[in-house]
C-alpha cells in the first residue's frame, strides 16, 4: 500500500518541504504579451496564470455598456494541459464561470470605473498551470495586469489561500493540501487593510477561522511587497528607456565622473 502523504509532519514541515506559514516562490513577469494594453504572468509555485487586460475601450456589444461607469468583463480560460489530468473545460463550465464572476465582483469596487463611463475593460485570464491556489493567483495576476495597463485603482488586491490542518494553520496551499484540508481564500487591500474577498467552500470550525483569517491578511501584506517591487522595477525600466533618449542625465543615480 502506498503510504499516505503527511500534510504536516512532526518536524513542522509540509509535503513540499515548506514550513507552516511559508509561501511558495512568486515570480512576476510584467512584459508585454501580444496586443494587450497590460499583461502579467504570475506564478505561485507551480501555478501559473497569464492575465491580459484590454481597455478601457468601446464595448463590443452596446448593450453591455453602463452609462455612468466602465463595465469589467472577465473571461477565464483554462489550458487543457494545466492540471495533472488532462481535461478540456468548455467555456460554459460552472467552475470557470464561478472564478470569472468572483474576479469581477472582487475588482469592481477597487477599479475606479466611474472615470470611464460607457466603456469596457476586458480582463482575459489564461491558466497555464495549476497546482493549488488558483483563485489567489488569478486575483494577484489581475491586479498586476490592471496596474500594468495603467488603469486607476484604489489599491492593490493581494490574495492568499489559508488552510487548517487539525489545529495548525497553513498558508498558500498546493493541490495536494487543498484536497485534504479546509481552506479559505482571503484578498486584502494592503493600504487600507480592507478585505476585498473571503471565500470558503469547505467546512471550517469557527474557532479556527479568526486565526487563519488574520494570518492570510498578514501574508497578503507580504505579497503586496513582492508585487509592488515588481511594478516599481517594470516602471523604472520603462522610465530608464525613455530617459536615455530625452535627457543626457544618468538615470541610475550615479554622479557623472568628474574628469577635470
Amino acid at each position: 500500500m502506498s503510504s499516505r502523504v503527511e500534510i504536516l509532519n512532526d518536524g513542522g514541515y509540509r509535503s513540499d518541504g515548506r514550513r507552516q506559514f511559508e509561501l511558495r516562490e512568486v515570480t512576476i513577469n510584467l512584459a508585454q504579451q501580444g496586443h494587450a494594453d497590460g499583461s502579467a504572468i504570475i506564478t505561485h509555485g507551480l501555478t501559473q496564470v497569464l492575465v491580459s487586460v484590454f481597455g478601457p475601450r468601446e464595448a463590443k456589444m452596446r448593450s453591455q455598456t453602463i452609462h455612468d461607469r466602465a463595465n469589467i468583463n472577465v473571461d477565464v480560460n483554462v489550458a487543457a494541459f494545466s492540471a495533472g489530468e488532462r481535461r478540456k473545460r468548455s467555456r460554459g463550465d460552472k467552475r470557470i464561470l464561478e472564478i470569472a464572476s468572483t474576479l469581477k465582483s472582487t475588482f469592481e469596487p477597487v477599479v475606479q470605473t466611474t472615470l470611464y463611463p460607457r466603456s469596457q475593460i476586458d480582463v482575459y485570464v489564461t491558466v497555464l498551470q495549476q497546482d493549488g491556489g488558483l483563485l489567489q493567483t488569478c486575483i494577484n495576476g489581475t491586479t498586476l495586469a490592471l496596474i500594468n495597463a495603467g488603469i486607476p485603482m484604489l489599491d492593490f488586491v493581494c490574495a492568499v489561500t489559508g488552510g487548517v490542518h487539525s489545529t495548525s494553520p497553513l498558508l498558500d496551499l498546493t493541490t495536494l493540501e487543498e484536497n485534504d484540508v479546509p481552506h479559505v481564500t482571503v484578498a486584502i487591500m494592503p493600504k487600507t487593510g480592507k478585505v476585498a474577498l473571503v471565500t470558503m467552500e469547505t467546512r471550517l470550525h469557527v474557532d479556527r477561522f479568526e486565526e487563519i483569517f488574520r494570518l492570510a491578511g498578514e501574508a497578503g501584506k507580504v505579497l503586496h511587497r513582492e508585487m509592488k517591487s515588481a511594478v516599481m522595477g517594470r516602471t523604472s525600466a520603462l522610465v530608464d528607456a525613455m530617459g536615455s533618449q530625452g535627457t543626457g542625465i544618468d538615470r541610475d543615480g550615479d554622479e557623472p565622473m568628474n574628469t577635470a
Binding site: 501580444g34 496586443h35 507551480l46 489550458a79 494541459f81 494545466s82 498551470q129 528607456a241
Partner: peptide, 28 residues
C-alpha cells in the same frame, strides 16, 4: 509545463527589448 509529458513555447517576431509582440504559442 512541469505537469505535461512534453511541452514547448514558441514565439515568432517577438520584440527582443521587452519580449512584447509576436506570435506566441504554448504546446503541451
Amino acid at each position: 509545463a512541469d505537469l505535461a509529458n512534453g511541452s514547448s513555447r514558441i514565439s515568432i517576431g517577438r520584440n527582443v527589448n521587452d519580449n512584447g509582440g509576436g506570435t506566441e504559442i504554448f504546446a503541451a
